[in-house]
Design a protein around this nucleic acid. Structure first.
Lengths: 187, 187
DNA sequence: TCCTTAGTGTGATAAATATCACTTGATAAT
DNA sequence: ATTATCAAGTGATATTTATCACACTAAGGA
């Protein structure tokens, strides 16, 4: 189960067996079933999650109760309510299974210990964070320059696998359009 | 001039005088005038910039020539075309002065040397990147949950200083609405 | 001083998108 | 087998926003 983690990390920094063994001591595996919550709004955010298999949605709920998908997360991705995680405050979003999901859990304390104990891992997380930022910026640019149809096409192109696994109503929520509008875009 | 940098870094990690002297050797100060370009689309991105004084806009131009403000950057902020900077590829955006601006330039090579030579600085950049990512995610949530008027009000609230310094047409571009629509929102 | 340009506001109209209401087909639960 | 539930499509209409056209003001350059 941790093998996927090693492969994932070694795409960025090489690890010796000893180093990887050290890394592993910081993670706890856990399994969740479809519809279960990994993070609930208003509760503490204990972990950042590395996803081994499955699919999660990060959901923001506004004052009127409307839910929007902030992001999806699947195999080899990291996910959490990062503001709450890094500042150790209460969750403002929820993280929920779209499919049965296996994750490796990393507590904030272990995250800090891991970075302090092995500079390579701080380097790894820096790289991840940089490219996470770039991906968000791309999504903003997509918003700024494209209409609903174009954004949908870009999503199809970028994550073709996602479309097979997620109901269109959730894709609509991620794209920031109503499900009816999305339904009328396809042809 | 580097004092602002020290203060900025020490909000996250403390530095000895020797350490800060080491840090300084990696930065080069530069001055630009209003309308000058720090980065031009299609050219190499030599630096990440720390802004001492002034105001910049990061601009994306689409195929039809329409320009959109991806972000503004003012005192104490870092800015660059980060995808191009980190991957050492050509710029897909341009970075231009809205006001006369003084910056400290950090080349990619010096960025790596700085992180490798002083773990505190890798820690610093990790923290910056994490919160940069969170800020982008907030902007996405603002898009997903709010209409033009609400997004404008959120911007006014979050960066009241910006509104004094930037023409409304640029704010409109940043918010992803036409300047005419923005003009009709205020009352 | 005169002229140009940038910034802004506003009316009229078109286009994009949301909302509400209803239907259908597929799947899951009992 | 029957009934709920979910996902998806679609028509009618309302709302939001873009686009085009024009006017006005202030600031800067020749």
């Amino acid at each position: 189960m941790h093998d996927k983690l090693r492969e994932h990390i070694e795409k960025i920094v090489p690890l010796s067996d000893d180093e990887f063994a050290f890394v592993c001591t910081h993670f706890t595996p856990k399994k969740f079933k479809k519809h279960q919550f990994l993070i609930q709004e208003g509760e503490a955010v204990k972990y950042s999650y590395f996803i081994i298999t499955g699919l999660l949605k990060l959901v923001h709920t506004d004052e009127t109760g409307k839910q929007r998908i902030v992001s999806f997360a699947m195999e080899d991705w990291w996910e959490s309510d990062y503001y709450a995680f890094y500042t150790q405050t209460l969750a403002t979003m929820s993280l929920e299974c779209v499919e049965n999901t296996e994750v490796l859990c990393l507590s904030f304390e272990d995250y800090r210990k891991l970075c302090d104990g092995l500079q390579k891992m701080e380097r790894f997380f820096l790289e991840k964070s940089n490219f996470g930022f770039i991906a968000s910026q791309r999504r903003i640019i997509s918003w700024l320059t494209s209409n609903a149809k174009e954004r949908y096409e870009q999503l199809l192109k970028q994550y073709p696998a996602l479309i097979q696994r997620v109901p269109k109503s959730l894709l609509a929520s991620y794209l920031g359009v109503s499900r009816e509008t999305l339904s009328r875009l396809s042809p």
